[in-house]
Simulated assay, not measured.
Amino acid sequence: MPLDVVWIRDGRVAGIATLQPCSSAPCPHEASPGPVDAILEAPAGTFGSAAPGSVVDVGSVPD
């Protein structure tokens, strides 16, 4: 399944990529655009309106 990957730094989108399933070795990889605080993955197309600089609010996560 293709995935959207969003790299997050300081509560904002630092970068976005759509990753395709790997069908041969070695699998390609996508590097982050720099230091990040978090990575969010979801089915491809989920973050269609997001762009670098967009604010990210994922709420609080329980311990």
Rank of each mutant, 00 (worst) to 15 (best):
S24C: 12
G45Y: 09
T46V: 15
H29N: 12
A51D: 07
P2C: 10
D63K: 01
P35K: 08
H29E: 13
A42E: 04
S24Q: 14
F47C: 15
V36A: 01
M1K: 07
D10H: 13
A38G: 00
L3I: 09
E41G: 07
I39C: 05
V55K: 12
W7G: 01
V56S: 00
C22H: 03
E41Y: 06
P52K: 14
M1P: 04
C27A: 15
P26C: 15
R9V: 10
R12V: 13
G48L: 06
G48E: 11
G59W: 00
P43T: 07
A31V: 08
D10W: 12
A14P: 15
T46L: 08
I8W: 03
A17Q: 11
V13T: 02
P26F: 10
V61H: 02
A50Q: 05
W7V: 08
L19E: 04
D4L: 02
L3M: 10
R9Q: 10
F47Q: 03
L3E: 07
L40Y: 03
D4H: 13
G11Y: 06
Q20V: 13
S60W: 01
V36I: 10
P26T: 06
E41H: 04
P33Y: 15
G15P: 00
P52T: 12
A25W: 00
T46A: 15
A42Y: 08
S24I: 11
I39L: 04
R12I: 09
A17H: 08
Q20C: 13
R9L: 11
P52A: 11
S54I: 11
P2W: 08
Q20K: 14
P26W: 13
W7Q: 02
C27I: 09
I39T: 08
D37T: 02
G45M: 14
E30T: 06
L3R: 07
R12H: 15
I16L: 09
V55T: 10
P62A: 05
C27T: 14
G15L: 02
R9G: 06
S23T: 11
P62K: 04
S23V: 12
S49N: 10
S49R: 05
S60D: 02
T18S: 14
M1T: 09
H29P: 13
P62V: 02
A42R: 06
P33L: 15
A38R: 03
L3P: 06
H29M: 09
G53L: 14
S24H: 14
E41Q: 12
P52C: 13
E41C: 09
V36G: 01
A31N: 09
V61P: 00
G15E: 00
G15F: 07
V6Q: 01
E41K: 06
G11F: 11
V6L: 06
P26V: 09
L40P: 04
S49D: 08
S60V: 01
G45E: 13
D57S: 03
P2D: 10
G15W: 05
D4I: 06
S24Y: 08
V36N: 03
D37P: 04
S60E: 01
V58D: 01
A38C: 01
